[in-house]
Design a protein around this nucleic acid. Structure first.
Length: 140
DNA sequence: GCCAACGTTGGC
DNA sequence: GCCAACGTTGGC
């Protein structure tokens, strides 16, 4: 089991949109970055990820799980681009802001801080636990 | 709205 | 294969 982080502009695709899709989930398409694509290719069914709102919110707002492993991105004919499907698992009781992440020395190595433009990124098990604690989310 | 960071494209 | 030009992302 691995952990990930997905970034989205809420104006384009928000947590609310994701929740509306329910258990059917939705393609995490539109990624045109090799690093991000490569991470998606590593994802396995049942892996968990945070859903991050960039721009206005700048906060982790929910938890998603991988419900389909890497497959061609339906929004392009270009065979280079693959994506996974994700579905909402639960909202975070207390969204964790970018400020909180930046100000926590335990989270200083996160790509969210160091590589602000990377839209799909891995999260370590330690970071996952710390972030769940900050969010008031009980890991079951 | 601006701009820094950075990834991609395309000419040479 | 290099690198300048360009486009995009995302924090501020």
């Amino acid at each position: 089991m691995r952990y990930w982080l997905f970034k989205s502009e809420p104006d384009t695709w928000s947590w609310t949109d994701q929740v509306a899709k329910g258990d059917a989930g939705e393609e995490w398409n539109g990624v045109r970055n090799y690093q991000a694509r490569n991470f998606m290719r590593e994802m396995k069914l049942g892996d968990l990820g945070f859903f991050y709102h960039s721009q206005k919110d700048k906060a982790l707002v929910g938890i998603v799980t991988i419900c389909a492993e890497s497959h061609p991105d339906s929004t392009t004919d270009d065979p280079r681009w693959d994506c996974v499907d994700v579905k909402a698992v639960a909202p975070l009781p207390k969204p964790v802001t970018l400020d909180q992440v930046k100000n926590d020395p335990r989270l200083a190595e996160m790509a969210l801080v160091k590589q602000s433009r990377l839209s799909v990124q891995p999260v370590t098990a330690d970071e996952w636990q710390i972030l769940c604690d900050l969010a008031g989310y009980e890991v079951s």
